[in-house]
């Protein structure tokens, strides 16, 4: 009888600890968001997001972070677009053209998963050395290309996860109409997976806009708006990173404001992608 009680007590204790573990994770997220908003919201104002830094981003006490906001949006949009142009065909190809080569496709997926694990600093270092090799200076373009490489495996696998759920009956039906595999890919599978592809795009965009280590080497930093692909560009992560280490409070405030904006962008992305994966399903067969 005693043993039974002991067992019950043991289970109870562990259940409490396990419950606490889950709670701690939720609390950690709340704490992160709270501390960023608490510190940063007072600094967010219209002039903060609509002005360029004045007197240099590291010393000037005036001005805002428009340069970083626009720079990040340009950079992330460009990289997402490039990664999409490269990534979508790969996802479709391995599911349609390589439909019968199951083992090969699993090998490819395995490789892509491994690549997903490569840290962004490695892409950054690589991008930097390639840039030097071609005699390029740090620029929006160099950063965009580096980030493209970094998000490519993420993009491919995210789309692939959606495409691989399409029933092969649809492939058979489309091919029976005399479609080529490429037509099947772009005209039918693409539509069928449109909501999932949107989510994959958002996910990749979020990675692209948030990563600092890959752009640290390659985009440089500037007080100006991005006007050309060949010029250095400010980005939000670096706006936070550089300005946070400043001794001047007004400059730090710009870092905190940037942190709020970046966090809000990420939150919005994750909300939208939750919604899109539910909506846009009306043309989808189940």
């Amino acid at each position: 009888m005693n043993i039974l009680k002991l067992r019950k007590a043991e289970e109870l204790i562990f259940r409490i600890i396990m419950f606490l573990a889950t709670t701690v994770i939720i609390l950690a997220l709340c704490m992160i968001i709270y501390s960023i908003l608490h510190k940063g919201l007072p600094s967010v104002s219209w002039s903060m997001i609509s002005q360029l830094p004045k007197g240099g981003f590291y010393f000037g006490k005036e001005g805002g972070i428009l340069n970083a906001i626009l720079g990040s949006v340009y950079l992330a949009s460009g990289a997402t677009l490039l990664a999409f142009v490269l990534g979508l065909p790969v996802s479709l190809y391995i599911n349609i053209h390589l439909h019968k080569r199951k083992k090969l496709v699993n090998g490819i997926r395995f490789m892509l998963d491994v690549m997903w694990g490569i840290p962004s600093i490695v892409y950054g270092a690589f991008g930097f050395s390639v840039m030097l090799f071609f005699g390029m200076r740090s620029s929006l373009l160099a950063g965009m290309l580096t980030v493209t490489l970094f998000i490519l495996p993420i993009m491919i696998r995210a789309i692939d996860e959606i495409v691989k759920t399409v029933p092969s009956g649809l492939l058979e039906a489309t091919l029976s109409l005399g479609s080529t595999k490429s037509e099947t890919a772009y005209r039918v599978y693409f539509r069928q997976c449109i909501s999932g592809i949107t989510t994959a795009l958002l996910l990749s965009f979020g990675r692209a806009i948030g990563d600092a280590a890959s752009v640290l080497f390659t985009t440089g930093y500037t007080d100006n708006l991005p006007t050309s692909l060949a010029k250095p560009t400010a980005t939000l992560p670096l706006a936070i990173f550089f300005q946070l280490s400043s001794p001047i409070e007004e400059v730090k405030a710009r870092a905190y404001a940037s942190a709020v904006i970046l966090t809000v962008i990420i939150l919005i992305i994750s909300i939208i992608s939750r919604i899109t994966s539910r909506k846009y399903q009306k043309n989808k067969i189940k």
Partner: peptide
């Protein structure tokens, strides 16, 4: 969301 929050934000936190 935890997975999506950028590294630099964790740094600020």
């Amino acid at each position: 969301i935890l997975a999506g929050i950028p590294s630099v934000i964790y740094g600020v936190w």
